[in-house]
């Protein structure tokens, strides 16, 4: 019977842990959820068409997100264009070509360290290179490049992990019919890992959307009452890159600016901008989850 007492004691210990853990998790989540809900409720009255199509203003009720969301879209698109191809290429290179050499080890250590460096350092570094050395100014281009630098290590790391998850047997099968290394990469490694890579990239992008410190450091403005020039013109060659040279702001900076103002009206604006940011990141996360699900279903081993 002593055995049963002992067993009972052990079972009780376990139940305590389960109860405590569950209460902690659920209460933490509930607090966060209710706060998010509160933010949505605070911001809801401001979330209308006008909010998205107005420039910031000194009057809280007239102020809108137009220049901020356009700036976010431009900066993040540029960052994605620069960092995604480069990051995936670097990941493929490190995983498939540069394994087990001292060069790869150095690159690897640098990449993991860079992934941990605080964003504001990237801001300082970008200020030095893009603004001061390359004279790109405090522009959309500088913002995009800065965020691209910030995203790059993350994209490299997720690409490598995705590639490493592909079973060696599939690569061997391709080599065994006489494929070259590049053919193995292009025909097998990339298509099979694309789902996981995209998921990781989307997470990196959704983190980049929320960055403020490095962008303020390179000179993003908080009050912008105009849009960058249109990328399309009526004259030949019909595209213009003048928008790259435009000053910019982004949604979190705009939000930041509103939070720091006195008066509950601006707080409502901040809550509305926060709600927009949250919806944006939830949507991106949803896409990531969906992609992972879809592509994993097609590619199983």
């Amino acid at each position: 019977m002593q055995g049963r007492d002992n067993l009972l004691h052990r079972r009780r210990l376990e139940k305590v842990f389960v109860a405590v853990a569950l209460v902690l998790i659920v209460s933490a989540l509930l607090v966060l959820l209710s706060l998010t809900a509160e933010m949505f409720i605070d911001g809801l009255p401001r979330l209308n068409w006008k909010f998205f199509t107005s420039f910031p203003s000194r009057h809280a009720s007239d102020a809108g997100l137009l220049s901020a969301w356009v700036g976010t879209v431009l900066v993040i698109s540029l960052a994605a264009i620069f960092s995604i191809p480069l990051g995936i290429a670097a990941g493929v290179y490190l995983e498939e070509y540069g394994r087990d050499s001292w060069l790869a080890a150095i690159i690897e250590i640098n990449v993991t360290n860079l992934a941990a460096v605080p964003p504001i350092i990237y801001g300082l570094v970008a200020l030095g290179i893009f603004v001061q050395s390359w004279n790109l100014g405090e522009t959309v281009l500088t913002g995009g490049l800065t965020i691209a630098l910030l995203m790059l290590p993350t994209v490299v790391v997720v690409s490598r992990e995705a590639i490493r998850a592909i079973p060696a047997s599939l690569k061997e099968a391709a080599y065994a019919v006489g494929a070259s290394k590049w053919q193995v990469i292009w025909d097998h490694v990339l298509p099979y890992s694309l789902g996981s890579i995209l998921t990781g990239v989307i997470v990196a992008v959704s983190r980049a959307i929320g960055e403020t410190a490095p962008l303020i450091t390179v000179g993003a403005l908080t009050y912008i009452a105009f849009l960058p020039e249109s990328p399309f013109t009526s004259k030949f060659p019909y595209v213009s890159f003048a928008w790259l040279q435009a000053p910019f702001t982004v949604v979190p900076i705009q939000m930041f600016n509103w939070i720091s103002r006195a008066g509950t009206d601006f707080q409502a604006n901040a809550a509305a901008a926060g709600a927009v940011l949250v919806i944006l990141t939830l949507l991106m996360n949803g896409v990531a989850i969906y992609l992972r699900y879809r592509l994993r279903k097609a590619v199983q081993w």
Partner: peptide, 28 residues
């Protein structure tokens, strides 16, 4: 490997169609 091919211990088809699995050696 183009002249000496191999069949492995566990079946390891590519996550592609039946046709593309066989055609791969030619496409390569």
């Amino acid at each position: 490997r183009m002249r000496i091919s191999m069949v492995f211990q566990k079946p390891n088809p590519f996550p592609k169609s039946i046709y593309e699995n066989v055609a791969y050696g030619l496409r390569v």
